[in-house]
């Protein structure tokens, strides 16, 4: 038996798997974004029980490993009688994970909008919905953009954890190639380089947005 070496074909397979990493990231950001937005609104609600429930949700998600969220959704979904491909468990767990962090980022952004904005819009007889829609959220969105893009980097990296339940994304593809070629150093450096190519521009973008947001302020 001859071992394959890590060549162009193998690199092509890595590139191909990168698509799944990106798809999973997009699923996590959309799903987690919707869920996280709801939790962020609940977290800033006027009703205390709703606020506490949302805070508890955030604390729990941020207090447990992503790997455990993954296992619980993987085994939980099959326990509930769903025979689903790993993509669903992976997508569900990444969604739950992202929602816990995005909710907290967006809560901070909503609360960073000066109180006077609430008071001014209230004095204009706006309903709470109108306040959110026309006054608070547009400003909060601006504030939330840099940390949200920064968090996207975390999501890209953490999708690698789904390889543990056998979902073939970039990290898993690296393992498969390593099993065939047994050139771990080269293979995993290539995998790391591909992650870097995706993550680094996002990190820089987040930093740029951050600087632009604070352009007018004192420092």
């Amino acid at each position: 038996m001859t071992l394959k070496t890590f060549g162009l074909d193998q690199f092509g397979f890595l590139l191909f798997s990168l698509q799944w990493t990106i798809l999973l990231t997009v699923i996590a950001l959309i799903g987690g974004g919707l869920l996280g937005f709801a939790v962020a609104l609940a977290r800033t609600s006027q009703l205390k029980p709703v606020r506490i429930a949302a805070a508890t949700y955030i604390q729990i998600i941020q207090g447990i490993p992503v790997l455990m969220i993954l296992f619980l959704s993987y085994y939980g979904l099959s326990l509930a009688g769903f025979e689903l491909p790993p993509l669903f468990a992976a997508g569900a767990s990444m969604t739950v994970y992202a929602s816990g962090y995005l909710a907290e980022i967006w809560r901070g952004s909503i609360q960073a909008v000066p109180k006077q904005q609430w008071e001014a819009s209230e004095s204009l007889a706006m309903t709470r919905l109108q306040q959110y829609r026309y006054v608070i959220l547009p400003q909060a969105m601006r504030i939330s953009l840099p940390p949200t893009v920064g968090f996207a980097v975390q999501v890209v990296k953490n999708t690698s954890i789904t390889s543990i339940i056998g979902f073939v994304e970039l990290a898993r593809a690296g393992q498969l190639i390593n099993n065939a070629t047994f050139q771990p150093f080269r293979v995993f450096l290539a995998v790391a380089a591909l992650y870097f190519v995706v993550c680094y521009p996002l990190s820089q973008l987040s930093r740029l947005l951050e600087r632009r947001l604070h352009a007018g302020s004192s420092r």
């Binding site: 390889s163 990290a171 690296g174 771990p184 150093f185 450096l189 790391a192 990190s203």
Partner: peptide, 19 residues
């Protein structure tokens, strides 16, 4: 900061023996 922890572990655990 721009590469996954899992891949870093793979490089340390599977890659270092090669060196």
């Amino acid at each position: 900061r721009n590469t996954p922890f899992l891949v870093q572990l793979f490089i340390v655990y599977f890659g270092l023996p090669g060196l």
